[in-house]
């Protein structure tokens, strides 16, 4: 198998792993954080959280910030890979 074919297979499996549960399982797919809190409340009903987040951001803003986080990372990866590609082509020409 050529390298690009292999990479396409890898991507396909990753997408499948994420999409299959959405199709086959009927559930909320909610944030998991709340569930952890619930579990702690069941085990230790008298536990009082002694600190709270600095700022409680609205859900929409939160997803924007998550997207921003991914975008920053992806931007840097793109920059580095592009730089490597340029360098690698330059050294091939010489």
């Amino acid at each position: 198998m050529s390298r690009s074919a292999k990479n396409i297979w890898i991507l396909a499996i990753v997408v499948l792993l994420a999409v299959a549960p959405l199709i086959f399982i009927n559930a909320e797919f909610g944030g998991a954080d709340g569930a952890a809190e619930e579990m702690i409340q069941t085990i230790a009903p008298h536990y009082e959280p002694w600190a709270s987040p600095l700022a409680e951001v609205p859900g929409e803003t939160e997803s924007m910030l998550f997207a921003l986080q991914a975008a920053i990372g992806a931007g840097i990866i793109g920059y580095v890979i592009g730089l490597f590609k340029g360098k690698s082509e330059k050294s091939k020409q010489q």
């Binding site: 709340g34 569930a35 952890a36 959280p49 709270s52």
Partner: peptide, 11 residues
């Protein structure tokens, strides 16, 4: 339901 990797603030 499952649990997030990060332990929540104050928990």
């Amino acid at each position: 339901s499952a649990y997030a990797m990060h332990i929540m603030e104050g928990f």
